[in-house]
Design a protein around this nucleic acid. Sequence first.
DNA 1: AAAACGGACAACCGCACGCAT
DNA 2: CATGCGTGCGGTTGTCCGTTT
Length: 236
Amino acid sequence: MVRAPCCERMGLKKGPWTAEEDQILISFIQRYGHENWRALPRQAGLLRCGKSCRLRWINYLRPDIKRGNFSEEEEETITKLHQVLGNRWSAIASRLPGRTDNEIKNFWHTHLKKRTEHNNYLASTTTTKRSFHDMMIPKRTTNVSQKINHHIIASNYQASQNIVTYHPTCDVEDLQENNSSSYSESTQSNKEESMQSINGENIGTESANEHGDTSFSNDMVFWYNIFISAGTISES
DNA sequence: AAAACGGACAACCGCACGCAT
DNA sequence: CATGCGTGCGGTTGTCCGTTT
């Protein structure tokens, strides 16, 4: 299906938003909400397309946006979730309250991507084969990695038997439920295959086809679960 | 001092999906 | 079932600003 771009209509403003436009958008949404983005700019008296308004609100003007630098924990969260989810920024953002997918995407491209590639390069040159565990746990000790290591000991690495059972604060069903619910709020059904595979039944087959390595995919799920669990603890 | 360069981030664009008709 | 609309997502581009030469 082909349709015209939403901003095709001439006369709509593009480029950086002014403080005045921001104020108009904020006050309109606070008063009337944003049920219809396409109609919103006309109703609010803005010479912007609905898409632009939506983006501006979601990525910048929303009151619950967390501004400022990413913490170390947030960096590690992004890195690890990217290992599992790939470039599914909205899914990653759903695990980082106050952060937007655009912000995370930018941060990844400007900071973490290079670092990750560098680390991968070092890994490939220093060892012939490293375990997924080695790759996922950074050398320097941080709160998150400490917690993860604690979980390793506590769980006696049950995932080595392809079983993910240790979830002190977030069991597998919760994880699956949380993921599917939060994810379905923001994305489409065909994009859920990796999260759907986070149950004991489906884990191996799909990813094994993709990677040709069942234990690798199980390890990924294991570390994802561990990480989420650790993250949950850190918030309490 | 100013031009060149590069990083960071805001914003845009095109595509795909769900839903209504 | 086909079509069109509204929306969300991810890739890409544009712009600003600090640093280097």
